[in-house]
Design a protein around this nucleic acid. Structure first.
Lengths: 344, 344
DNA sequence: TTGTAAGCGTTATCAA
DNA sequence: TTGATAACGCTTACAA
């Protein structure tokens, strides 16, 4: 609308107070008399003052900005978590500057430099590109989510528990043979424990089991082909048995279901399927399958709590060492009955 | 690592240049002799200088910040577009502050105020909450994506074309009766034209058709029930015909497929299905279905081009009126053969 | 309760 | 090619 922006000086001139008093109106209104408060309030409206945080940031050094580095969001899990993080604005008031990583180390280091140049007060990392050792050296509070976190604070789902829940469910369904499907994951990644949990149950209960850990290629089509090869391998030797399959994510699980149908015309019997993440696709699938759900809202909240805690510490003492805190969030197994409903 | 942050003053002291010269090193290095440039370069390393954009912003008024207001991302389309927008950082260098709206008008107005207080240079709106009249009055460049855009610049998919493509595909498949399924959408929304396109073809070709425009409730379960009622209604009168169904999004489409199977044990024949958005679920479905794909990368790029164009204009002349530009992006129909493959 | 003046880290203007 | 100085919009001692 108007030309130049209205500043504290303008309001000061208009009201015949000083800039300081205007500042106090916002930061320590209790020092002002009600009458003077009213005068300033009216002036703000009359002049249509718009808050400008840049000056404040320069003076106070507090940006209320948090940086986020996302991996590519092709897995719905990531956009679920991201959505949950954004929702935290309501409770914490911090704003998020978001960059999307692309597995290029140099580039993500630049992202971080760029974010730091805006004086972000904290950093949330979902991308897997940079090692935690490097993140720990940044000097700002950092929390990672569901990734390697040796030297830095983190929030992870209890993947071991998740694997145990999944395998137990298969066991309850009295499968004859048990299978775990995933792409290769390095043991430092929390998700690795899905496998460990699965193995734990298999060992305890002495269940015949096999791991199918292999690259499946990029894109759904390639994944589908890879899954197909695995299912063929399984069916080759277990066609007369009830097989229990635990997939490390729902996308793989839905592809298992799809392949069973496309290739073998089998739907919702013969095999028992458990996915991971409980994303919408587990419900939308033609026969909904069970899935280990991650509590993304809890994850987001814990992340912010660690981060804000460290930020407050830093505001008090900018030199202080940041503690390394690890939070673990319990997964929630969503059971779905995969037996087909009768036609009515 | 260290205590206080290194500033231009520190570098000036260290090198015995003035702050001005240090600033020039970054902004107009050609004014410096190569030797002096080298000296400063070394000093930067020696002191481990970290860029600080806050000072620069205060002095220049250019934040290189763009605000985004997202709707809740439960439809994968939104996270696809969002991902594409984030990718634009590489080409444009602008950073994004992201807030997630929740259909609360007051609250979203506060979001915008908050964003403006950070001196964002532009705004991208995907949320549907605020009318374009209000957005147009903000004074910053604003581009909306796929929503009501009467008074403001926007980028939309050619929904009319999308509807035409979908209906034409059904027609090519020689359906006997044609159906459109969506929730009620106000005619100002670009998506409304999906229906118009569908109707256009039906009228042209004189195809028997019906519109099922009704609330389906919140959440997949409710949607599923609603879709079920619609399919039952259709089957009641068309069970012996080949029905062609165009769903306004892929989620509805997959639920149609699911319901046909669960209730009627029909898969991939009898009906012909087209979705919208070509999201991953259209591929993952047990029988993949055709879908009108939105070119989210093109949408994101066009959005940024309009926005950056207006931002540049504003930098030259902060008083200038902002033009209202509308870009339309062609949808791309992804055909998928829904006939079942033979068992081999 | 209010004001003065210095400061936050950069850039812009002008002069040298 | 370089530097002194003011300016950007706000906060914060300190003084009154």
């Amino acid at each position: 609308m108007s030309g130049k922006k209205v500043t504290f000086s303008d309001i000061a001139d208009y009201t015949h107070f000083s800039k300081t008093t205007i500042s106090r109106y916002f930061n320590n209104p209790e020092y002002l008399t009600p009458e003077n408060r009213k005068i300033i309030e009216d002036a703000l409206k009359a002049l249509n003052y718009q808050e400008n945080k840049i000056g404040r940031i320069l003076a106070k050094g507090e940006t209320e900005l948090i940086g986020i580095i996302m991996p590519s969001m092709y897995m719905p899990y990531y956009s679920d978590v991201f959505q949950s993080i954004l929702n935290q604005y309501t409770d914490f008031g911090y704003k998020f500057i978001v960059l999307s990583g692309d597995s290029n180390k140099r580039r993500e280091e630049n992202y971080i430099r760029e974010l730091l140049s805006y004086n972000i007060e904290g950093l949330i990392i979902l991308s897997h590109t940079l090692p935690s050792s490097e993140l720990a050296a940044l000097g700002v509070p950092v929390v990672t989510i569901e990734r390697e976190d040796r030297f830095i604070s983190s929030v992870n789902t209890d993947n071991l528990m998740g694997g145990i829940q999944a395998a137990s469910l298969l066991y309850q369904n009295q499968c004859d043979a048990y299978f775990f499907i995933d792409i290769p994951v390095c043991p430092e990644t929390p998700g690795y424990n899905r496998l460990v949990g699965f193995q734990t149950i298999c060992r305890d209960k002495k269940l015949p089991n096999e791991l199918y850990i292999q690259e499946l290629g990029k894109g759904i089509e390639n994944n589908y082909r890879g899954i197909g090869r695995i299912i063929d391998a399984i069916e080759m030797r277990h066609s007369d048995q009830k097989v229990g399959i635990f997939c490390a994510n729902d996308t793989f699980a839905v592809l298992v279901e799809k392949y069973y149908f496309q290739r073998y015309r089998i739907i919702g019997r013969h095999y028992c399927l458990v996915g991971y993440d409980n994303s919408s696709i587990a419900t939308e699938a033609i026969v909904p399958f069970s899935s280990v759900g991650q509590q993304t809202d809890v994850i987001a909240r814990e992340t912010m709590e660690i981060l804000i805690g460290q930020i407050k510490k830093r505001r008090k003492d900018p030199e202080c060492r940041l503690p390394v805190e690890h939070k673990v969030v319990t997964p929630i197994l969503k059971r779905r009955d995969t037996s087909l409903p009768e036609l009515y």
